[in-house]
Nucleic acid binder design. Sequence first.
DNA 1: ATGTATGCAAAGAGTTTGCAAATGG
DNA 2: CCATTTGCAAACTCTTTGCATACAT
Lengths: 158, 158
Amino acid sequence: MTSDKGSQNSADSQRRQERLRHSGLRNTRPRRHVLQVLAVAEQPLSSREIHSRMGAEACDLVTVYRCLADFERVGLVQRHEFGDSNARFELNDQTGHHRHYVVCRVCHGKEPMDVCPPHWLEEELRARGYSDISHSMEFFAVCPHCRDDSHPGAPQRQ
Amino acid sequence: MTSDKGSQNSADSQRRQERLRHSGLRNTRPRRHVLQVLAVAEQPLSSREIHSRMGAEACDLVTVYRCLADFERVGLVQRHEFGDSNARFELNDQTGHHRHYVVCRVCHGKEPMDVCPPHWLEEELRARGYSDISHSMEFFAVCPHCRDDSHPGAPQRQ
DNA sequence: ATGTATGCAAAGAGTTTGCAAATGG
DNA sequence: CCATTTGCAAACTCTTTGCATACAT
């Protein structure tokens, strides 16, 4: 029953702490905990969602906000804006790879797209003198499941 | 001294009121005023920015929010999320054309990109059974001006 | 006339800030 | 040791809601 989608064994934990140290951030319990929650998340999570998943041992919600701000600054996480004024975050992998999602307008499920076309546009921007370039891109649609069910039951994923 | 960037002559005003009526929305003074501000805006504006630009004759800020919600619902405006948790809006043209921007990390200036590569991705999503598809895409970077000035003066555009 | 839209007040929600105490390297 | 980080409380900002009044058609 334990999720094996993400990485939550000791070796992965070591690797995350390695990335923390390498980023110049101190290796604290709240930060390890936030990283661990993100590591096993099946989709981007908001600060509150992360805090909830930390359970009884949770640090203060404010600390989650501060961790995420730091993680974003050093490139450990990517921020997503899915339009519900709720910033969501996901762990970047070591290669700097990141994802874009389709968000269902009905069930709010989030499906990764696994493509990233704007990269050549970043090249063009670089040629125009821009530096330190990144981008956001999300899709919004009614997913096949919700289109068929006119009266969808419980949302697939929130 | 009057800006002629946007459309604020009487003919354009007529055309905007036409679009209002055609959308099934009542032709009220606050709505005309919000549309007029958007029509002459050189970049997407937040509710508060719109309200400020309405000057002494401004309607209530709440009404601006409601206008924008209505306008978005009927497709008159496009919403942008530039990452500062401040929704910004711009007028769509009649063809449904919309824009994507580069936002400078330093001066927060917004430059339109005039390209829209995700359209073929929407096709792919359609093929996978998704419907009612739209997307968001924004770029973030340090603009040439701010890269050169290590100590930028006043932000170019906010 | 009648449903729609507005203004005002107040609430809701996410996020940020100040500061003293705790902690990591 | 000392700079960084945390917790707690409170503030701040954007946005939404309730309801009586005003307005468009």
